[in-house]
Simulated assay, not measured.
Amino acid sequence: MTEKASESMRINMRDVSQAARTMLAAEQSATACPPLTADWSDLDMATAYTIQDEALDQRRQRGETLIGIKLGLTSRAKQIRMGIDTPSLAWLTDAMVLPFGEPLTRTQMIHPRAEPEIVFILKDRLSGPGITAATALRAVGQVYGGIEIIDSRFQDFSFTASDAVADNASSARFVLGPIARAPDGLDLTQEACLLEVDGEVVDAATGAAVQGHPAEALALAANQLAERGISLEPGWIILTGGMTDAVPVPPDTQITARFTNLGATTIAGGTSCPSSK
């Protein structure tokens, strides 16, 4: 490696580390910042994932534990909107878990939005490449309905796909529903969800909205992570992607995701309340 190439790499990693710190600082202070691409116009997806990984390292250094992954942009409509042709991946840590009944602390959020998700808990290790949906589903121990709270750190919720990946796909909090089911006997393609705001249905979808079947999203994640030498581990939580568009969560607004077989979960303005009805 030439001295010039070595210097270029050092500068690039310095930029990556700084970008990760910027994202985490915006998250911790709940203060929106300009998109990274405002000053880094050629930020590509590979570099964005490097920023995401560096941010995970920094999260671990401050005591967070890796507990799984989330997929984003799993619907074709969202991919077209963002100008990409495959879902994005991001990390989940224990700091993102919102337990039943605990408040969604508004001071820790910038502009939170909620989306319903089908959630997997793995019982077996899943390593690509070559993972199919059928293979992926056999590695699943439990299926939940849930709600993910996304909260982009960028001003006006305006960003490119690379910005979003560097921002860990707008990760914030997530709530698992009250009912766990084994995947056997569930038709996740047909598993329906009604998304309600203050008791009024504002959107609806089935599991088919997630890559045709949530297990397809899981297989895609395993194969994509295999390219980076990473496997999905037993016990990991997998958020398979929003079934509907995300809706804002202003104070004093109740958001409910009501599933056919997986119960219902409600997040109310500042609190989350589980329900099995």
Results as ranks from 00 to 15, higher is better:
residue 126 L to R: 00
residue 150 I to S: 12
residue 207 G to S: 07
residue 178 P to Q: 09
residue 90 A to T: 07
residue 185 G to S: 13
residue 154 F to R: 01
residue 153 R to W: 00
residue 126 L to Y: 08
residue 88 S to H: 14
residue 165 V to A: 07
residue 138 R to W: 03
residue 205 A to L: 13
residue 179 I to H: 07
residue 177 G to F: 09
residue 103 P to Y: 03
residue 175 V to S: 03
residue 93 T to W: 02
residue 176 L to F: 07
residue 129 P to A: 07
residue 193 C to D: 10
residue 125 R to E: 15
residue 165 V to R: 10
residue 128 G to E: 12
residue 200 E to N: 14
residue 166 A to F: 06
residue 209 A to M: 05
residue 201 V to R: 12
residue 134 A to W: 02
residue 150 I to G: 12
residue 163 D to K: 08
residue 217 A to V: 08
residue 150 I to A: 12
residue 215 A to L: 04
residue 190 Q to R: 14
residue 139 A to K: 05
residue 106 R to N: 06
residue 157 F to I: 13
residue 163 D to I: 05
residue 122 L to R: 06
residue 198 D to F: 04
residue 144 Y to S: 02
residue 218 L to F: 09
residue 143 V to P: 11
residue 162 S to P: 08
residue 195 L to D: 03
residue 176 L to D: 00
residue 129 P to T: 09
residue 129 P to Y: 11
residue 139 A to R: 04
residue 153 R to D: 09
residue 158 S to D: 00
residue 166 A to V: 09
residue 120 F to I: 06
residue 118 I to N: 05
residue 106 R to V: 08
residue 205 A to Y: 11
residue 205 A to M: 12
residue 203 D to E: 11
residue 214 P to Q: 10
residue 132 T to R: 09
residue 117 E to R: 01
residue 188 L to I: 04
residue 120 F to E: 08
residue 196 E to L: 15
residue 177 G to D: 07
residue 138 R to E: 12
residue 117 E to Q: 05
residue 188 L to Y: 04
residue 190 Q to D: 14
residue 216 E to Y: 12
residue 139 A to S: 10
